[in-house]
Amino acid sequence: MEHYLNMFIKAIFVENVVFAFFLGMCSFLAVSKKVKTAFGLGLAVIFVMVLTTPLNYLILEYMLKPGALSWISPSLADVDLTFLAFILFISTIAGAVQLVEMVVEKFTPALYNALGIFLPLITVNCSILGASLFMQEREYSFAETAVFSVGSGIGFFLAIVLLAAIRERLRYSKIPEPLQGLGIAMIITGLMGMAFLSFSGIQL
């Protein structure tokens, strides 16, 4: 149990997808102007991540790994399909995002309009494909994958809401005009990244 709790905390703070690996930066910077939209995108990312990472784990385990196909027939035991991992992972993610897009469009049109192009872009939010690839690379078990995906999703949520809150406050500060908006957001993200570096090495 402690192992899972430790992994959960690590995925949120120590190895935050945004600040430690700099994944998912595009939507992170573009949708963090208001806390409300950042909140919506963060929730969407948690949802898609929790849905797709365990699904990709099952695909990897029962379709792609060497010997994984032996449940169909023993003659397939030495087929190694892991080179297809990219295409299958991204297809799963694209399918899940399409589902989320339809649900959001139907039930909360206001959020749908606010997220605009960044809803379809969750598909190419590197943090989601990144979570699946980390799961493959680190050879997690199914339970570990589930805990890791929830932690990573919450980590992204936390990061984007934090940045949105800072940017809302920034509106009242006097920043040189050309640096306003994206420029200062980049520099602040860099500073937040350095702050998050101080979490490294923490263990429960």
Binding site: L179, G183, A185, I187, G193, M194
Partner: peptide
């Protein structure tokens, strides 16, 4: 370190 790239792109934008 990765934060340096953020600072440099921020300065480039400026």
């Amino acid at each position: 370190l990765p934060p340096a790239a953020l600072f440099l792109i921020g300065i480039y934008i400026w």
